[in-house]
């Protein structure tokens, strides 16, 4: 249907047969995942390694980035309404498999793991090149969905850079999408409210959260089933073999786009003064005074 949309313009002359074909072909979706250090760890337990330029793992667990899960949830809801096939894709060390298993438990149709055996935090262009090469290798992808940013480095570039690597358009901050007669209708958040955007596939969208796409909790049975489902594993060499865009040595070294030269925890000591008073009324009066004195100084 959607991929066929583009092809049909060139090859199919009969509208009737094009429509018939549209209804049969599924939207092929790839959802890209990132595994990150649990962002909920409290500040007091947070340490950085200023040599490796990354957070220390400590006792924290690794989780799938929330916006990636929002993206997967949006994809699942799209499939429920309009049909389609969802492939979860991750570029991560061996442990990244946990995120893929969870995606399968949430009912993604397939999972692809590109093994990262190089730098722990490759730069955004290195990541986008690997993911784009994996998308090309999968073939016939209509829609690439990624989270708007990650909860660790919050770089916010993967979607845009993937669009450029794939040579296709992209739309950011999408929270809902629907299939229409031709192409897709995307609802996205803006600074002031929202916009509706019409788009043709193939397309990259970055997904943000709203009250509609909170990730579902997988059923126990599906979690058990997911542990036995196949995962496709590719090495960087596998990708480089049929993709000139992949420079394995550069990606293992972290990429040539940017490098982190400093990482530190800012020291900021603020003492909160709790308003005092015998009664609630007195304390609220104090609070009002403090508020007004700040407001008047602005």
């Amino acid at each position: 249907m959607i991929a066929a949309d583009i092809i049909s313009k060139r090859t199919v002359t009969s509208t009737a047969s094009a429509t018939a074909q549209k209804q049969k072909i599924k939207v092929n979706i790839v959802v890209c995942l990132k595994q990150i250090l649990d962002p909920e760890i409290p500040s007091r337990d947070f340490r950085v390694d200023s040599e490796k330029m990354e957070a220390q793992r400590g006792g924290a667990s690794l989780v799938t980035n929330i916006f990636c899960e929002n993206a997967l949830e949006t994809a699942l809801q799209f499939r429920e309404k309009f049909g389609g096939r969802i492939t979860a894709l991750i570029f991560a060390p061996a442990g990244g498999e946990d995120s893929l298993r969870k995606a399968l438990a949430m009912k993604a149709d397939a999972a692809v793991h590109v093994i990262n055996d190089g730098a722990a935090h490759p730069d955004p262009l290195a990541v986008a090149r690997v993911l784009a090469a994996a998308v090309r290798r999968l073939g016939n992808i209509d829609l690439v969905m990624v989270g708007r940013e990650s909860g660790d480095w919050g770089v916010g570039q993967t979607g845009g850079l993937m669009a450029e690597e794939l040579g296709i358009p992209s739309v950011s901050f999408v929270d809902r999408l629907e299939k229409q007669e031709r192409g897709l209708l995307l609802h996205r958040q803006t600074d002031q409210g929202w916009e509706n955007v019409e788009a043709q596939t193939p397309l990259v969208v970055t997904i943000t959260n709203d009250d509609q796409n909170l990730p579902r909790i997988p059923k126990t049975r599906d979690i058990m089933l997911s542990s036995r489902q196949p995962i496709i594993r590719w090495s960087l060499e596998d990708l480089a073999a049929d993709d000139a865009g992949i420079d394995v040595a550069e990606i293992r070294a972290g990429g040539g786009y940017y490098r982190v030269v400093d990482l530190a925890i800012p020291t900021k000591e603020i003492v909160c003064e709790m308003v005092a008073g015998e009664t609630l009324e007195e304390r609220v009066d104090q609070l009002a005074d403090r508020i007004m004195s700040v407001v008047r100084s602005l």
């Binding site: 947070f46 660790d152 040539g256 940017y258 030269v261 530190a264």
Partner: peptide
Amino acid sequence: LRVSRSVYGGKAMATIELLR
């Protein structure tokens, strides 16, 4: 050009050097 930005949900500050 080096860009400083907040990372890890505001728990740390990073300085990033742009290579291109």
